[in-house]
């Protein structure tokens, strides 16, 4: 980078400092101080907030959140990869339309889309109305883990499809042709050539879905009926209801660490190192 262009980054550096680094530092500061000492004069440090977290109660909460996020990510991957593959294979005239249809729901507010699922799954919702019209007993579709997973998959699927699609469509077609020329059938070509080359997209898709899924609090609340505590709802409650910012901050920091660790683990699996550098 030339010396002159360096100045172009200054506005962003200021932005980053004020809106990213400073808040994280403040959250960290809250997490290591005592509640009663939230003024500069009487500040006193403690690790109590972190110790408190290693209670089976809260470990259970975080494991449950991770489990649900993993399942959702898995479903997104299973559903999303074939779709991305299909779109990348489609003729260019259709491709943009299909992509557009995929992104279209994202123009709508996420809360609205989640509320829509409540009216689909509810006791007097679309599905149950149809079922009872057929004379069958109503099903309990809303307020369980399945409903949360449906909501997450629906909301986060585009984040999986788009990066996979990008990596598939960027792929050098000559490599695939070479594979066929060398006698590989379509299955082998997919397994040995296409899949490995699309891994950067898959990895970034997994990260893009996993991160919001693990910390989401709107979806568990609306579709899960708050029957279980999740990490996102727990942090929200500690800040807004209990007013225990210090413990809430400690959990937020722990969650950041978990995401950081899982991201670096994911990058280890990544075969194409150059691709992974351009994930974001």
């Amino acid at each position: 980078m030339g010396n002159k262009q360096k100045y172009l980054t200054y506005p962003y550096i200021v932005w980053m400092f004020i809106f990213i680094l400073l808040p994280v530092a403040l959250v960290f500061l809250y997490s290591i101080t005592e509640k009663e000492s939230n003024t500069i004069k009487t500040i006193s440090f403690t690790l109590e907030n972190y110790r408190l977290f290693f209670d089976p109660l809260y470990i259970g909460v975080i494991l449950r959140s991770l489990y649900l996020a993993l399942i959702s990510t898995l479903f997104c991957l299973i559903l999303g990869y074939p779709v991305a593959y299909f779109i990348s294979k489609a003729s260019p005239s259709y491709r943009n339309t299909i992509l557009m249809l995929f992104i279209l729901p994202m123009w709508m507010n996420m809360l609205l889309r989640t509320y829509a699922w409540m009216t689909i799954l509810g006791n007097n919702g679309l599905i149950n109305t149809f079922i009872s019209w057929m004379g069958l007993p109503k099903l309990n579709l809303l307020y369980n883990n399945a409903a949360i997973i449906i909501g997450m998959v629906y909301n986060f699927l585009p984040f999986m499809v788009l990066p996979i699609y990008t990596s598939l469509s960027k792929m050098d077609k000559r490599i695939i042709e070479a594979s066929y020329d060398l006698g590989a059938d379509s299955k082998t070509t997919f397994r040995k050539v296409i899949l490995p080359l699309s891994m950067p997209g898959v990895i970034s898709g997994i990260i893009m879905v996993f991160m919001p899924a693990v910390s989401s609090f709107v979806i568990p609340r609306l579709l899960g009926g708050n029957k279980q505590a999740y990490i996102g709802t727990l942090i929200e409650k500690l800040f807004l209801v209990t007013g225990n910012w210090n413990f809430g901050s400690a959990i937020a920091i722990i969650m950041m660490l978990i995401i950081l660790v899982s991201m670096s683990v994911m990058n280890k699996f990544d075969i194409d190192k150059e691709g992974s550098a351009n994930l974001w």
Binding site: K35, L57, Y58, G60, V61, R64, N226, K227, Q228, A229, L234, K237, L238, V241, T242, G243, N244
Partner: peptide, 16 residues
């Protein structure tokens, strides 16, 4: 006051 933490813990236990 800070006794609200008792309620908080109990409620989290119910939900967990």
């Amino acid at each position: 006051g800070t006794n609200i933490n008792l309620y908080d813990k109990v409620w989290t236990e119910v939900l967990s």
